[in-house]
């Protein structure tokens, strides 16, 4: 009995030893910076005073400032608009590819895996490649559209607001599709085949089977994919920074790029911090769903 107690005490200590190094890192590198970001957003930290520490608390003035600027509202709208359209395209395309590659043919698994490469490619490279492909003079996209007589003159994709937005959406969708595909494909493997068999005996056609069997059975995976997709897309930075720099004008300015611009181009650190905090709050509105999904599954196990 005594021995057992000692074991449990040791077990607790071991647990701390396992988790502590990681916890210290997380505290120093993530939790404290978040707190300091919050504090900073109530101060007036900029390039002139951040080293000397001669900063002052200014209350909510920075938030009033950023929301008075029209570009803040444009960025919020752009971020939502961008995220919405990315999901509208990447989810159905990813779903369709998941359905296709779940069919039983030689090489289906291998080909499906190969397509996942697009998801692994660093965003900066994706941005570079798509910037090249959307180039108005020599880009392959204009060339194909011209050859097919869909357009008569080259489109200056990145020079106009709407087409620039469409271009970054296209690039992000390309990277996002395999993510949707692979998660949904894994979920599809959990659907038992006999459910389909009994449905087809009952006379359900393919479309009915899809909407009345596949979708309801995949609901948890679908919610996961959409929530995670929203989170990853909403915090987009590299893609926009590299492909359009937020332009032309502020037509593709996102919350993340605006925060970066305030902090590191204008060196108004407090202003950047305030925008980043708004981004974080909006992100967490959806994030709580994700956390709930994960922790709920945790309890079930």
């Amino acid at each position: 009995m005594k021995k057992k107690k000692g074991y449990f005490f040791r077990k607790k200590m071991t647990f701390f030893a396992f988790v502590l190094p990681g916890a210290i890192y997380m505290t120093v590198m993530i939790i404290l910076p978040i707190l300091s970001n919050i504090i900073m957003s109530f101060q007036d930290v900029n390039l002139m005073n951040f080293a000397s520490g001669d900063t002052h608390f200014i209350g909510l003035a920075m938030y009033q400032d950023i929301f008075r600027d029209k570009v803040m509202w444009t960025s919020i709208w752009n971020t939502l608009w961008f995220t919405l359209w990315c999901l509208i395209f990447q989810f159905p395309i990813g779903f369709a590819m998941a359905m296709f590659f779940s069919k039983d043919f030689k090489g289906s698994r291998f080909l499906r895996g190969i397509n996942v490469i697009a998801w692994m490619i660093p965003m900066v490279a994706v941005s570079g490649i798509f910037k090249y492909m959307f180039n108005s003079d020599i880009g392959i996209i204009n060339r194909i559209l011209l050859d097919l007589h869909i357009i008569k003159t080259p489109v200056e994709w990145l020079a106009h607001g709407n087409t620039a937005m469409a271009s970054i959406i296209a690039a992000n969708v390309w990277k996002g599709v395999p993510f949707n595909m692979i998660l949904l494909a894994t979920a599809l493997t959990t659907v038992p085949a006999d459910v389909y068999e009994s449905a087809s005996i009952d006379g359900a056609n393919q479309i009915q089977r899809f909407f009345y069997i596949t979708v309801p059975l995949l609901k948890p995976a679908i919610i996961s994919v959409l929530t995670l997709g929203f989170i990853y897309t909403f915090k987009v930075f590299d893609l926009v920074y590299v492909m359009t720099g937020g332009g032309p004008g502020s037509s593709t300015e996102m919350l993340s790029t605006l925060a970066y611009r305030y902090s590191f181009n204008e060196y108004n650190f407090s202003q950047g911090a305030a925008v980043a905090n708004v981004l974080f709050v909006l992100l967490m509105l959806v994030g709580v769903f994700y956390i709930r999904i994960v922790t709920k599954e945790d309890e079930e196990i």
């Binding site: 997380m26 590198m29 993530i30 404290l32 910076p33 978040i34 300091s36 970001n37 900073m40 930290v45 951040f50 989170i231 915090k235 930075f237 919350l255 993340s256 925060a259 970066y260 902090s263 590191f264 650190f269 950047g272 911090a273 925008v275 980043a276 905090n277 981004l279 974080f280 992100l283 967490m284 994030g287 994700y290 956390i291 994960v294 922790t295």
Partner: peptide, 17 residues
Amino acid sequence: LVAQMLPSSLILTPLFV
């Protein structure tokens, strides 16, 4: 879980300072 969702811009400024 929260950390996995964080936008880099949130910690970028404090880390830089």
